[in-house]
Write a protein that binds this DNA or RNA. Structure first.
Lengths: 222, 222
DNA sequence: CCCAACAGGATTTTATCTAATCTCTCCGAT
DNA sequence: ATCGGAGAGATTAGATAAAATCCTGTTGGG
């Protein structure tokens, strides 16, 4: 066991609060008062304050001095900006992955990818996203570039919130799976340029899909 | 007035603690206990804890659950990784600057650049860095891309710490000034490709200088 | 009469303190 | 070398106070 996870209340509160925001139970613009959250989550003020600070760093929460915190509302430009940032960081991170990824890592990524495709096939968008996060986390962990990986990790909740609000277009998950397969093949071949190009293109496709759905926000299942 | 003195103790404590770390008074690896810092800075535990969380987000502090916080030690690969990340984000941010920068902004940037060159001419490396931060802050603020700008803002303290520890090579500040001038000219001409290329190249030059000095760490003044 | 400025109180954030619980590290004994 | 306990420090809760903001009702001038 590499990590037995000594869980603090701070971690638990952060995860719960993040989920409330990402899933929309706390909608954009909602006021986040420490006392109300502490009561709702059954915790003290200390871990709630820490959680708000962390989620502010993730861009999920906006805070002004003496004016409290609110759930951040994302405009269309924010979607574009977040994905442009992520694509740029992918351009840094994927070459590092090629440099350091082991065949054992690739096997583990293959296994996660199979689970992702199973969830996608079953039409389980939320489940697919959860596995997708594991996939990307492992991928980025192999890069040995903690600063760049932190940017991807921090902005993940924003991406998840957008997806849960806007949903996937028909066939989107299948195309994502194809991109993953192609990326894994390029990684196996240690083809830096191809891998980076595929990752950036995949991110851009995801952005385009989200922007299209934001423009015409009807929820069509998978 | 865009930003005056820190309003809350949290801001003040964060700024003081960041300075202690950046200037080396708290060297890499130093243990950061909440009680000791609270006593040293004349504050309570609440703002100190918040400051540690913020500086952890900036990559200046490393924390493990129930094991406390330490000043992060940067290896050579970290320097490279941080600058590669910053260059990639510049590639996103500078086109946004071209899109949104006003002539008034450019005038203000010219004024800051003049102050930067005056400090560089006087051999005041620390002063030059302070003005340099104002220059870049204003530059990035015009981009209207808060997520990307936050990455640059967060990693600034790391860059500052490296510079204060390793110093500038002879002529480095002058070359930096030349790069700024060229960037400003490209911005005035609204030349997106040129501006982005110059900014990335300037960042890479700064990285190369730091890496050279990290390899042979003798302190030569300006 | 209407609107703006102002003063007061309520609310919330921020900050400090105390105390209790939990985890890690270290040290000695088996 | 492994186990267990003591101490140090992190984490948490709760009460409380100070500071700032928000809300509201009133006043004063036009």
């Amino acid at each position: 066991m590499i990590e037995s996870t000594p869980i603090t209340h701070e971690d638990a509160v952060t995860a719960q609060l993040r989920r409330l925001i990402v899933e929309g139970a706390l909608p954009p613009g909602a006021k986040l008062t420490v006392s109300a959250l502490a009561a709702r989550l059954g915790a003290g003020a200390t871990p709630v304050r820490a959680a708000l600070k962390l989620l502010e760093g993730e861009g999920l929460v906006e805070a002004l001095p003496y004016r409290g915190a609110r759930v951040r509302a994302l405009a269309t430009e924010d979607i574009r900006n977040i994905y442009r940032l992520r694509a740029a960081v992918l351009g840094v991170l994927v070459p590092d992955v090629v440099r350091h990824v082991s065949n054992a890592d690739l096997d583990a990524l293959d296994a996660l990818e199979a689970r992702f495709e199973a969830a996608a096939e079953a039409g389980d968008g939320a489940g697919a996203m959860a596995v997708n996060q594991q996939f990307h986390r492992l991928l980025f962990a192999t890069a040995r570039n903690p600063d760049a990986a932190a940017v991807m990790e921090r902005s993940w909740a924003l991406v998840e919130a957008l997806r849960l609000r806007l949903g996937f277009s028909p066939g989107r998950l299948q195309r994502s799976a194809e991109s993953h397969r192609a990326l894994l093949a390029a990684l196996r071949g240690r083809d830096t340029a191809a891998a980076a190009g595929l990752a950036v293109a995949s991110s851009n496709e995801a952005m385009a899909d989200l922007l299209a759905r934001a423009a015409a926000p009807r929820r069509e299942a998978v």
